[in-house]
Protein backbone atom coordinates (compact mmCIF):
# COMPACT_ATOMS: atom_id res chain seq x y z
CA UNK A 1 0.00 0.00 0.00
CA UNK A 2 1.27 3.45 -0.84
CA UNK A 3 1.78 6.29 1.60
CA UNK A 4 -1.42 7.63 3.16
CA UNK A 5 -2.24 11.26 2.41
CA UNK A 6 -3.22 11.72 6.00
CA UNK A 7 -2.23 9.62 8.96
CA UNK A 8 -3.29 10.12 12.58
CA UNK A 9 -1.40 8.35 15.35
CA UNK A 10 -2.57 8.14 18.96
CA UNK A 11 -4.78 11.21 18.76
CA UNK A 12 -6.49 12.30 21.98
CA UNK A 13 -9.15 14.84 22.86
CA UNK A 14 -11.01 15.58 26.09
CA UNK A 15 -13.68 18.07 27.05
CA UNK A 16 -12.94 18.76 30.70
CA UNK A 17 -13.21 15.43 32.48
CA UNK A 18 -14.76 13.67 29.47
CA UNK A 19 -12.26 11.78 27.31
CA UNK A 20 -13.81 11.65 23.86
CA UNK A 21 -10.87 10.40 21.78
CA UNK A 22 -8.61 8.01 23.67
CA UNK A 23 -5.72 7.34 21.31
CA UNK A 24 -7.07 7.03 17.79
CA UNK A 25 -5.22 5.97 14.64
CA UNK A 26 -6.60 6.71 11.17
CA UNK A 27 -5.29 6.62 7.61
CA UNK A 28 -6.76 7.89 4.36
CA UNK A 29 -5.41 7.26 0.86
CA UNK A 30 -5.60 9.26 -2.34
CA UNK A 31 -8.31 8.05 -4.68
CA UNK A 32 -9.94 5.95 -1.96
CA UNK A 33 -13.03 6.36 0.17
CA UNK A 34 -12.37 5.57 3.82
CA UNK A 35 -15.58 5.16 5.77
CA UNK A 36 -15.57 6.13 9.43
CA UNK A 37 -18.36 4.45 11.34
CA UNK A 38 -19.35 4.22 14.99
CA UNK A 39 -22.35 4.67 17.23
CA UNK A 40 -23.75 8.02 18.33
CA UNK A 41 -21.25 9.76 20.58
CA UNK A 42 -18.35 7.53 19.52
CA UNK A 43 -16.34 10.66 18.67
CA UNK A 44 -16.57 10.79 14.89
CA UNK A 45 -17.50 14.46 14.62
CA UNK A 46 -14.89 15.32 17.24
CA UNK A 47 -12.25 13.58 15.12
CA UNK A 48 -13.38 15.54 12.08
CA UNK A 49 -13.30 18.88 13.89
CA UNK A 50 -9.73 18.16 14.94
CA UNK A 51 -8.71 17.43 11.36
CA UNK A 52 -10.39 20.65 10.24
CA UNK A 53 -8.47 22.70 12.78
CA UNK A 54 -11.73 23.95 14.22
CA UNK A 55 -11.24 22.11 17.52
CA UNK A 56 -7.57 21.05 17.73
CA UNK A 57 -6.58 17.71 19.28
CA UNK A 58 -4.99 17.68 22.73
CA UNK A 59 -2.29 15.19 21.78
CA UNK A 60 -1.20 12.88 19.01
CA UNK A 61 0.67 13.01 15.73
CA UNK A 62 -0.75 14.20 12.43
CA UNK A 63 1.19 13.29 9.30
CA UNK A 64 0.33 14.82 5.96
CA UNK A 65 2.06 13.04 3.05
CA UNK A 66 4.45 11.54 5.59
CA UNK A 67 5.35 14.89 7.16
CA UNK A 68 4.32 15.89 10.66
CA UNK A 69 2.08 18.95 10.56
CA UNK A 70 0.06 20.99 13.04
CA UNK A 71 -3.63 21.61 12.51
CA UNK A 72 -4.76 24.24 14.97
CA UNK A 73 -6.74 26.67 12.83
CA UNK A 74 -9.16 26.28 9.90
CA UNK A 75 -6.63 28.16 7.79
CA UNK A 76 -3.84 25.64 8.45
CA UNK A 77 -6.15 22.80 7.51
CA UNK A 78 -7.23 24.59 4.33
CA UNK A 79 -3.59 25.28 3.44
CA UNK A 80 -2.95 21.52 3.44
CA UNK A 81 -5.96 20.95 1.23
CA UNK A 82 -8.12 19.46 3.98
CA UNK A 83 -11.76 20.34 3.47
CA UNK A 84 -14.73 19.35 5.56
CA UNK A 85 -18.41 19.05 4.73
CA UNK A 86 -20.09 19.22 8.10
CA UNK A 87 -23.02 17.25 9.39
CA UNK A 88 -24.97 20.51 9.72
CA UNK A 89 -23.69 21.73 6.32
CA UNK A 90 -22.75 25.21 7.52
CA UNK A 91 -23.89 27.19 4.50
CA UNK A 92 -25.16 30.77 4.65
CA UNK A 93 -28.74 30.60 3.45
CA UNK A 94 -28.85 34.31 2.74
CA UNK A 95 -26.01 34.01 0.23
CA UNK A 96 -26.04 32.42 -3.22
CA UNK A 97 -24.16 29.34 -4.42
CA UNK A 98 -21.09 31.22 -5.68
CA UNK A 99 -20.87 33.31 -2.53
CA UNK A 100 -21.04 30.20 -0.36
CA UNK A 101 -18.49 28.27 -2.39
CA UNK A 102 -15.99 31.13 -2.15
CA UNK A 103 -16.79 32.20 1.39
CA UNK A 104 -13.59 33.10 3.21
CA UNK A 105 -11.48 32.80 0.04
CA UNK A 106 -13.06 35.33 -2.29
CA UNK A 107 -11.28 36.36 -5.47
CA UNK A 108 -10.37 40.03 -5.24
CA UNK A 109 -8.94 42.26 -7.94
CA UNK A 110 -8.53 46.04 -7.69
CA UNK A 111 -9.72 45.84 -4.09
CA UNK A 112 -13.15 44.60 -5.05
CA UNK A 113 -14.74 41.17 -5.40
CA UNK A 114 -14.18 39.66 -8.83
CA UNK A 115 -17.59 38.09 -9.31
CA UNK A 116 -16.85 36.97 -12.87
CA UNK A 117 -13.95 34.69 -11.96
CA UNK A 118 -15.78 33.26 -8.96
CA UNK A 119 -18.87 32.60 -11.04
CA UNK A 120 -16.87 30.79 -13.71
CA UNK A 121 -14.87 28.64 -11.29
CA UNK A 122 -18.01 27.75 -9.36
CA UNK A 123 -19.88 26.55 -12.41
CA UNK A 124 -16.80 24.73 -13.74
CA UNK A 125 -16.45 22.88 -10.46
CA UNK A 126 -20.14 21.94 -10.41
CA UNK A 127 -19.88 20.73 -13.98
CA UNK A 128 -16.73 18.72 -13.32
CA UNK A 129 -18.71 16.90 -10.64
CA UNK A 130 -21.46 16.29 -13.22
CA UNK A 131 -23.98 18.17 -11.13
CA UNK A 132 -27.28 18.36 -12.99
CA UNK A 133 -29.64 19.51 -10.30
CA UNK A 134 -28.62 23.17 -10.17
CA UNK A 135 -29.84 25.57 -12.82
CA UNK A 136 -28.12 28.80 -11.76
CA UNK A 137 -25.04 29.42 -9.65
CA UNK A 138 -26.67 32.63 -8.45
CA UNK A 139 -29.54 30.89 -6.69
CA UNK A 140 -29.83 31.65 -2.99
CA UNK A 141 -29.05 28.64 -0.84
CA UNK A 142 -32.34 29.22 1.00
CA UNK A 143 -34.13 28.18 -2.20
CA UNK A 144 -32.26 24.87 -2.57
CA UNK A 145 -33.34 21.37 -1.54
CA UNK A 146 -31.38 19.30 0.97
CA UNK A 147 -29.60 17.35 -1.75
CA UNK A 148 -28.74 20.49 -3.67
CA UNK A 149 -27.32 22.03 -0.51
CA UNK A 150 -25.22 18.94 0.09
CA UNK A 151 -24.00 19.24 -3.49
CA UNK A 152 -23.03 22.86 -2.96
CA UNK A 153 -21.19 21.97 0.25
CA UNK A 154 -19.27 19.20 -1.51
CA UNK A 155 -18.49 21.41 -4.50
CA UNK A 156 -17.22 24.05 -2.09
CA UNK A 157 -14.87 21.51 -0.57
CA UNK A 158 -13.23 20.57 -3.88
CA UNK A 159 -13.10 24.08 -5.31
CA UNK A 160 -9.49 24.76 -4.35
CA UNK A 161 -7.66 21.53 -5.19
CA UNK A 162 -8.61 19.63 -2.08
CA UNK A 163 -6.36 16.68 -1.16
CA UNK A 164 -8.55 15.35 1.62
CA UNK A 165 -12.31 15.78 1.76
CA UNK A 166 -14.13 14.75 4.92
CA UNK A 167 -17.89 14.27 4.72
CA UNK A 168 -19.81 14.05 7.98
CA UNK A 169 -23.04 12.11 7.35
CA UNK A 170 -23.69 13.66 3.94
CA UNK A 171 -26.80 11.58 3.29
CA UNK A 172 -28.38 11.60 6.74
CA UNK A 173 -31.21 13.95 5.82
CA UNK A 174 -31.74 12.91 2.21
CA UNK A 175 -34.34 10.87 0.38
CA UNK A 176 -33.56 7.85 -1.78
CA UNK A 177 -32.88 9.64 -5.07
CA UNK A 178 -30.82 12.42 -3.54
CA UNK A 179 -28.81 9.93 -1.47
CA UNK A 180 -28.02 8.10 -4.69
CA UNK A 181 -26.84 11.35 -6.31
CA UNK A 182 -24.64 12.34 -3.40
CA UNK A 183 -23.07 8.88 -3.13
CA UNK A 184 -22.15 8.85 -6.80
CA UNK A 185 -20.75 12.34 -6.29
CA UNK A 186 -18.62 10.97 -3.44
CA UNK A 187 -17.35 8.17 -5.68
CA UNK A 188 -16.48 10.60 -8.49
CA UNK A 189 -14.67 12.74 -5.97
CA UNK A 190 -12.44 9.82 -4.95
CA UNK A 191 -11.93 8.73 -8.56
CA UNK A 192 -10.57 12.17 -9.31
CA UNK A 193 -7.71 11.50 -6.88
CA UNK A 194 -8.98 12.98 -3.64
CA UNK A 195 -8.68 11.10 -0.34
CA UNK A 196 -12.25 10.93 0.94
CA UNK A 197 -13.23 10.24 4.54
CA UNK A 198 -16.92 9.40 4.73
CA UNK A 199 -18.79 9.32 8.00
CA UNK A 200 -22.06 7.43 7.89
CA UNK A 201 -24.47 5.45 10.01
CA UNK A 202 -25.82 3.71 6.94
CA UNK A 203 -23.76 0.58 6.31
CA UNK A 204 -25.50 -0.03 2.99
CA UNK A 205 -24.10 3.30 1.78
CA UNK A 206 -20.71 2.45 3.25
CA UNK A 207 -20.47 -0.87 1.44
CA UNK A 208 -21.65 0.79 -1.76
CA UNK A 209 -18.93 3.47 -2.03
CA UNK A 210 -16.17 2.85 0.50
CA UNK A 211 -12.82 1.12 -0.06
CA UNK A 212 -11.90 0.91 3.63
CA UNK A 213 -13.90 1.08 6.79
CA UNK A 214 -12.65 2.22 10.21
CA UNK A 215 -14.77 1.66 13.29
CA UNK A 216 -14.72 3.98 16.28
CA UNK A 217 -16.07 2.63 19.56
CA UNK A 218 -16.21 4.88 22.65
CA UNK A 219 -13.17 6.85 21.60
CA UNK A 220 -11.08 3.88 20.47
CA UNK A 221 -10.45 2.84 16.88
CA UNK A 222 -11.44 -0.79 17.21
CA UNK A 223 -11.07 -1.90 13.60
CA UNK A 224 -9.68 -0.74 10.26
CA UNK A 225 -10.71 -3.02 7.43
CA UNK A 226 -10.74 -3.39 3.66
CA UNK A 227 -14.40 -3.63 2.64
CA UNK A 228 -13.53 -6.59 0.42
CA UNK A 229 -12.43 -8.58 3.50
CA UNK A 230 -15.42 -7.89 5.73
CA UNK A 231 -19.18 -7.92 5.81
CA UNK A 232 -22.12 -6.09 7.30
CA UNK A 233 -22.47 -8.31 10.39
CA UNK A 234 -18.82 -7.97 11.37
CA UNK A 235 -18.93 -4.20 11.13
CA UNK A 236 -22.14 -4.08 13.18
CA UNK A 237 -20.37 -6.22 15.75
CA UNK A 238 -17.45 -3.80 16.01
CA UNK A 239 -19.77 -0.80 16.20
CA UNK A 240 -21.83 -2.24 19.05
CA UNK A 241 -18.78 -3.61 20.85
CA UNK A 242 -20.04 -7.23 20.70
CA UNK A 243 -17.07 -8.23 18.54
CA UNK A 244 -13.41 -7.43 19.10
CA UNK A 245 -10.80 -7.06 16.46
CA UNK A 246 -7.69 -9.19 16.41
CA UNK A 247 -6.11 -8.55 13.01
CA UNK A 248 -3.63 -5.84 12.30
CA UNK A 249 -4.60 -2.39 11.09
CA UNK A 250 -5.42 -2.17 7.42
Amino acid sequence: MDVPVIELTDVRKSFGPVDVLKGVNLQAFAGKVTALVGDNGAGKSTLVKGLAGVQPFDAGEIKFNNEVVSLTTPREAAAHGIEVVYQDLALCENLDIVQNMFLGREEVTAGTLNEGIMEREASETLQSLSVRTVSSVRQKVSSLSGGQRQTVAIARSVLKNAKVVILDEPTAALGVAQTEQVLSLVRRLADSGVAVILISHNLVDVFKVADFVSVLYLGHMVASLDVKDTNNDDVVGYITGSKTYEGKNA
Binding site: A52, P74, A90, L91, C92, L103
Partner: peptide, 9 residues
Amino acid sequence: NPEAARRAG
Protein backbone atom coordinates in the same frame (compact mmCIF):
# COMPACT_ATOMS: atom_id res chain seq x y z
CA ASN B 1 -24.77 31.89 9.72
CA PRO B 2 -21.96 32.83 12.12
CA GLU B 3 -20.84 29.22 12.58
CA ALA B 4 -20.53 28.70 8.83
CA ALA B 5 -18.56 31.95 8.57
CA ARG B 6 -16.22 30.86 11.36
CA ARG B 7 -15.59 27.49 9.74
CA ALA B 8 -14.87 29.27 6.47
CA GLY B 9 -11.98 30.96 8.26
